[in-house]
Simulated scan of single mutants.
Amino acid sequence: MTTRPTRADLAAAADRTIPDVLAPGLAVLFVGINPGLWSAATGWHFARPGNRFWPALHQGGFTPRLLHPSEQDELPALGLGITNMAARASARADELSTGELLDGAAILTDKVARYRPRWVAVVGVTAYRIGFQRPKATFGPQPEPLAGARLWVLPNPSGLNAHFTPVTLGLAFAELRTATDLPDRRAAGPPDQ
């Protein structure tokens, strides 16, 4: 889809799923809460205008330039991937049940065991707290690994999350990138092929 989804497109996208952007041995697997309707209508993760994931990914130094959501398939070449805690699309993350997040955490754990990323970055502390039953979890590195991967919790990049500005969100992503020992790609050219 190259045009903006219509209201009918968005309404039809409820409860859809979208494919993961995943490959074995990634450096970082980013985990969204669940696809929004805009993402489900387009098939692109973090696609809604106003979502700050892609700018934060670039400001954090993970990508050499700001990628459009339609370019998500370029991520594995950079050692990056995307999945979700819950697969079902909804208008808002708070429409998910506790059971969906608990089930999603179990599915994510199996996915991490199978694909073996070095780091898993959950993008949304509330979903992480509920899904993994860690009510006191905070942002940043987590003390326990997830299926052998190091675990990090980032702020939710949704435009609805007013607690983080684009600048502070970019800094949070940069802190993760520094911990992963990945280079700051903003100053670098395209990855070696």
Rank of each mutant, 00 (worst) to 15 (best):
P24A: 15
V122P: 01
T165G: 09
A87T: 05
S90V: 07
R150W: 11
N156D: 10
L80E: 11
L154P: 00
L78N: 06
R52M: 15
G60Q: 07
A106G: 07
M85T: 04
G36E: 13
L26K: 03
M1D: 03
G140R: 11
P5I: 04
L66P: 00
L171I: 14
W44K: 04
R7L: 14
M1L: 08
E95C: 03
N156V: 05
A86R: 09
T168N: 07
R16G: 07
Q133P: 04
V125W: 05
P143E: 08
A187Y: 13
W152D: 02
A13R: 09
L154R: 01
Q193L: 15
P35K: 09
L171T: 03
R92K: 13
L67C: 06
S39D: 03
L101Q: 11
P191Q: 01
P157A: 01
Q193G: 14
R118N: 10
Q72M: 15
H58P: 00
T109C: 01
D110Y: 12
P76G: 02
R116W: 14
V28I: 02
A127W: 09
A188T: 01
D184V: 14
T83Y: 13
S70K: 14
N51R: 10
P76K: 11
V167L: 11
Q72P: 06
P55M: 13
P55N: 03
T178N: 07
P55I: 05
R114Q: 02
R129G: 07
T126S: 00
P141T: 06
S70H: 10
L182M: 10
P24D: 15
P64L: 12
L176W: 11
Q72C: 15
W44T: 01
P143V: 08
H163M: 09
I33K: 07
M1Y: 11
Q142M: 11
